[in-house]
């Protein structure tokens, strides 16, 4: 039995000694190239390609100023998504884990973000400010940490209490926070915030981390994602804007987010750590793809399910080879 297997393996590995036929691979390749090129040109002419302009802070400030304002307060109070994120941006949380593996924490803080300063104070400081706002910035900068925290948290809580309806916020000891938030909103309206977040007062910049993270802390990006049908719960990662095909090849990755326990953020430990578990699963499956030829059962599927009879039909017929039981 095993010698039979070995003989087959040797036969499969040996140079082919049976019948051959003329076959012009260079011609085949050239025809393929011309075919594919023409097909691509035709598709491009008929369908073009997707290009929704990027969203801007200006757009956010104009269309939903209260939300940008409230988000700025969260950045100052340290309650925003970014401020509470953990690695690689800060130490505010341990991040996700897979069992005993706290990879997110272990990787450390490699892209430090201080939400209050990087998102609010530094951008404001790059501007020529109205005296009122300049005073607020100075007051914030000279105050003790505990004092800043008290102001910002009190205001953040007050806004949360009235569900973001700024006109209903009760009076309180908010220090310079309301003026800072208004200053940032006005700065965004003028279009100056986008660039200031990127450059942080410097010159060359190619890293959009701070812009993207601040953006995502608010509702503007999220709402736009929902409107464009891009949310993760609806296979979003795979989709493109408009009617274009997206990264359909990510279907297996997106798939896990659609089913329990991964789609339930409340369920512990897996749902709450879905991002990490799914990454690990996909890593293992990728390894599995590479190793298919040595994985028992799976590697024998092609012998058991006779699709090869169709692929090589001519050959089997001409040689009178019947299907063998394995």
């Amino acid at each position: 039995m095993s010698t039979n297997k070995e003989a087959k393996a040797e036969f499969d590995a040996a140079p082919w000694a049976g019948k051959t036929k003329r076959y012009d691979i260079v011609k085949e390749g050239t025809i393929a190239l011309v075919f594919v090129f023409v097909l691509t040109v035709v598709l491009s002419l008929i369908m073009s390609s997707p290009d929704e302009p990027p969203l801007t802070f200006k757009g956010w400030a104009v269309s939903n100023p209260d939300n940008l304002y409230a988000t700025a307060v969260q950045e100052l109070a340290g309650t925003s998504g970014t401020a509470t994120y953990g690695g690689p941006y800060n130490n505010a949380s341990d991040g996700l884990n897979v069992g005993p593996l706290w990879l997110q924490k272990w990787a450390g803080v490699t892209h430090p973000i201080d939400a209050a300063n990087d998102f609010v104070i530094t951008p404001l400081s790059t501007q020529v400010l109205a005296p009122e706002i300049a005073n607020a910035v100075a007051t914030w900068k000279s105050a003790a940490d505990s004092q800043r925290q008290a102001w910002a948290t009190a205001y953040d809580d007050a806004i949360t209490k009235v569900e973001g309806k700024l006109s209903d916020v009760a009076v309180g000891a908010y220090g310079p926070v309301p003026v800072l938030a208004q200053g940032l909103t006005d700065m965004a309206k003028s279009g100056a915030l986008d660039a200031a977040l990127l450059s942080q007062g410097g010159f060359f910049q190619t890293d959009n981390t701070k812009q993207i993270l601040f953006f995502g802390d608010g509702a503007y990006l999220d709402d736009a994602g929902t409107a464009a049908n891009l949310q993760g719960g609806t296979w979003g990662m795979m989709n493109e804007t408009g009617r274009y095909p997206g990264q359909a090849w990510l279907w297996l990755y997106s798939f896990w987010y659609q089913i329990p326990p991964f789609n339930n953020g409340e369920s512990k430990p897996i749902g709450a750590n879905a991002d990490a578990y799914i990454m690990v699963i996909m890593g293992l499956l990728s390894l599995g793809l590479i190793l298919i030829p040595i994985i028992p059962v799976i590697r024998n599927l092609p012998m058991r399910i006779p699709i090869h009879r169709g692929i090589w039909r001519q050959y089997y017929q001409s040689q009178g080879i019947k299907r063998r039981k394995m």
Binding site: Y85, G87, P88, G95, L96, V98, L103, Q104, W106, A107, G108, T110, H111, T206, D207, N208, T209, I212, L213, N273, D275, A276, M279, V280
Partner: peptide, 15 residues
């Protein structure tokens, strides 16, 4: 980020 890769492969860094 959840598996630590984000510390070196930063998808928000355009450059």
């Amino acid at each position: 980020n959840s598996v630590g890769v984000g510390a070196w492969f930063n998808v928000t860094n355009l450059g």
